[in-house]
């Protein structure tokens, strides 16, 4: 089953907000409710940048909930340890889990990092913006792919 996950935000925005078009989500296709096969940017991400974005509290802040092999004393254990995650999941599966893990588990605490709809009372300055850009998603996917056991 294929379906289009992203909505075209531009159509819903008033003309005056057109400067915010950079926030428009790129379209992506979800396969079998489990994979997003194509890179959101059309090219592979940069694992080094991905490592930084994953640790950065203002970006991925993945360490809030996950242990990762990153030298940082404060990590979390809300989600599973990601040490060997690339041995368990392939690239397309990792991408879906970053873009919108709620497609797999609607109850999960993990945020959808590339979604702008269905949210409630989002802080004004973040409204209409996904947590991460398409490029940051790809960078983090590339970094996660280095986490093999």
């Amino acid at each position: 089953m294929r379906r289009l996950g992203a909505i075209i935000v531009s159509a819903m925005l008033p003309v005056a907000a057109s400067v915010a078009f950079a926030d428009e989500l790129v379209k992506f296709a979800v396969v079998d409710d489990n994979e997003i096969r194509e890179s959101l940017t059309g090219k592979p991400g940069n694992p080094e940048e991905g490592r930084k974005a994953a640790a950065n509290r203002g970006l991925g802040n993945c360490l809030a909930c996950h242990v990762m092999p990153i030298k940082e004393d404060l990590q979390g254990d809300v989600g599973p340890d990601l040490k060997g995650v690339a041995s368990r999941l392939k690239e397309s599966e990792l991408r879906l889990r970053l873009v919108n893990p709620k497609l797999l588990n609607p109850q999960t605490a993990m945020p959808a990092f590339y979604r702008t709809d269905g949210l409630n009372r989002v802080r004004k300055d973040m409204e209409g913006k996904p947590i991460l850009t398409a490029a940051q998603i790809e960078d983090i996917v590339a970094y996660l792919l280095t986490l093999k056991e």
Binding site: N61, Q75, V78, A109, R123, I131
Partner: peptide
Amino acid sequence: QLDLSCANCHEDNDGKWMR
């Protein structure tokens, strides 16, 4: 934007660590 409820942190993950 993080789409979290009080219960996500204080019920589902009670006893766990966040950072």
